[in-house]
Computed example of a mutant assay.
Amino acid sequence: MDQATVIDLARKALYTALLIGGPIMLLSMLVGLIISIFQATTQIQEQSLTFIPKIAIVAIVLLIFGPWMMTVMKNFTEDLLLNIQRYIR
């Protein structure tokens, strides 16, 4: 396995991880920002106030994007296993 193959495989793995984790992280961050703005305007400084909405949005995102995420992971794994002979050399 040469250096270009390792770099290409690492690039594909990072890209796949960003595709899978991106929607969850982005929407969770957006909900956290909205709640932080709400807390700042109302001066409610309850630390546990952000947990339930974030958990709920993560569950909703997983329900909506779950099949797509599984397809992306399946395609990456299939590509990895089909080309394993090329990677081992």
Rank of each mutant, 00 (worst) to 15 (best):
M1A: 12
M1L: 10
M1H: 09
D2F: 08
D2V: 06
Q3T: 14
A4R: 10
T5D: 10
I7Y: 09
I7Q: 11
D8Q: 13
L9M: 13
A10G: 02
A10K: 03
A10Y: 08
A10T: 13
R11P: 00
A13F: 08
A13R: 09
A13E: 04
A13D: 03
A13K: 05
L14N: 00
L14Y: 01
L14C: 05
Y15V: 12
Y15E: 12
T16W: 01
T16C: 08
A17E: 03
L18V: 00
L18M: 08
L18S: 00
G21N: 03
G21K: 01
G21Q: 03
G22S: 01
P23H: 06
P23R: 05
I24K: 02
I24N: 07
M25P: 01
L26V: 15
L26S: 04
L26N: 00
L26G: 02
L26R: 02
L26H: 01
L27P: 02
S28D: 05
M29Y: 06
M29G: 14
L30N: 00
L30K: 04
G32Y: 04
G32D: 01
I34F: 12
I37N: 03
I37F: 12
F38R: 07
F38L: 12
Q39E: 02
Q39K: 06
A40Y: 08
A40W: 09
A40C: 06
T41L: 13
T42G: 06
Q43V: 05
Q43D: 08
Q45M: 15
Q45Y: 11
E46A: 12
E46H: 08
Q47D: 07
Q47R: 09
Q47G: 11
S48Q: 09
S48F: 08
S48W: 01
L49Y: 06
L49P: 05
T50R: 11
F51V: 12
F51M: 14
F51A: 11
I52K: 04
P53M: 05
P53K: 04
K54W: 01
K54L: 13
I55K: 01
I57C: 05
I57Y: 04
A59I: 15
I60H: 04
I60F: 15
V61D: 02
V61A: 14
V61L: 10
L62F: 14
L63P: 03
L63D: 06
I64H: 10
I64N: 06
F65N: 08
G66V: 06
G66D: 07
G66M: 07
G66L: 06
P67I: 04
M70W: 07
M70G: 09
M70S: 09
T71S: 10
T71M: 09
V72D: 01
M73V: 11
K74M: 07
N75T: 12
F76D: 02
E78Y: 10
D79R: 08
D79S: 12
D79M: 08
D79K: 07
D79E: 13
D79Q: 10
D79H: 11
L80H: 06
L81A: 09
L81T: 13
L82Q: 13
L82R: 14
L82M: 10
N83V: 03
I84A: 07
I84L: 13
I84Y: 15
Q85G: 14
Q85L: 13
R86C: 01
Y87I: 13
Y87F: 15
R89N: 13
R89K: 13
